[in-house]
Amino acid sequence: MKSSQTSDPQLSNVTVGGASRPPRLNFGHWLGVIPFFVFSGLFLIAPTLILAYRSLEGANGGLTLENYQQLVSDTVISAYAMSIKISLTTAILGGLIGFLIAWVVSMGGLPPRFRLITTTFSGVAANFAGVPLASAYVFTLGRVGLVTALFKMFGVELYKNGFSLYSFLGLILVYLYFQIPLMVLTILPALDGLKREWREAAENLGATPVQYWSRVAFPVLMPSILGTMILLFGNSFGAHATAYALTGGLFNLATLLIGQQISGDVLHNPGLGYAVAMGMVIIMAFSILIYSILQRRSERWLK
C-alpha cells in the first residue's frame, strides 16, 4: 500500500500532466519554484562557482591549473592527509559501532523501549556537533577533565602517556560522538528492511545462522553499510566547527586551513586557497555520488 503510494504519483503525474494540458510555459506554472532556484543559485551555486573560477585563475590572469598543481605543497598535503585520515577512521569505526548498536536494538533481544531511546538520542547526538560538543569533551578528557582526573586517582596520567584531546586520537573520540548516531539513524531502516521470511527461507533450506548472515543478510545490507560509511566520511571531512572549537582553529586540518586562509592569507597564495576549497568540494561530490549510487541499489533490494 505504502510503496505504491510513494512510487506511483511520479508516473501518473507525467501522463496526466502531459495529456490534459498542452505544453505551455505559463509563468504562473513556474512561480512556485522560482524562489527556490533563486536562493539556491545566489547562496549555494554562485559562491561555489566563484571559488571554482578563482581557483582556475593564474597569478597574472588567464585560466590555468597552476593552483591545483600547488596542492601538493607540504602544508596542503598534510592538512588533507589528516582530514582524510580522521574521516576514514571515524567513518569505519562509527560505521561498525553504529551498525552494532542498530543491530542490538533492532534484533538483539533488548526490550523495544531501548530502540526508541536510541533513535531519539541519536537524533540529538547527530545534531549536537560544534562548540557544545567540544566543550563537553574538554570537561571530560581535557587536561582537567573529569575522566582525566579519575584516571589520575588510579595513578594513570593520561597526558604524560601521550594522550591529548587536541590530537588525532582526541578528534576521533569527539567525532565519533556524532558519527555513530548518524550511522544508527541511517542503517536502522535498512536493518528493518531485512524480511523475516528471508531468514526463515534460509533456515528452511538448511542454512545455519552464520550462513544466513554471510550469504544473505550482509550482502543485502552491504550497499547500505558502505554507502552510509561514505556519508560519514563526508560528514567528518567537511566538519569545521567542532575542530575549530576544540583546537582554536590551529590544528592541521583541511577545513581549518581554509578558515585560516579566509582570515588572512596563510598560504601566501590566494589562488591556492581557492584550489584547496574546491578540492574539498570535489572530494565531497565524489563521495555523495557513490553514496547515492549505493543507496539506489539498496532501495531496490530492500523495498
Binding site: 539556491s40 554562485a46 561555489t48 566563484i50 567537511g238 577545513t255 581554509i258 576549497a277
Partner: peptide, 21 residues
C-alpha cells in the same frame, strides 16, 4: 540534486565563497 548541494559544499567552503562574492 540541488537539495544535495549543502552536503557537497562544506560550510567553511560556502562561507569562503560567500565572502569572496
Amino acid at each position: 540534486f540541488i537539495t544535495l548541494l549543502p552536503f557537497v559544499i562544506p560550510g567553511i567552503v560556502l562561507v569562503f565563497g560567500i565572502i569572496r562574492l
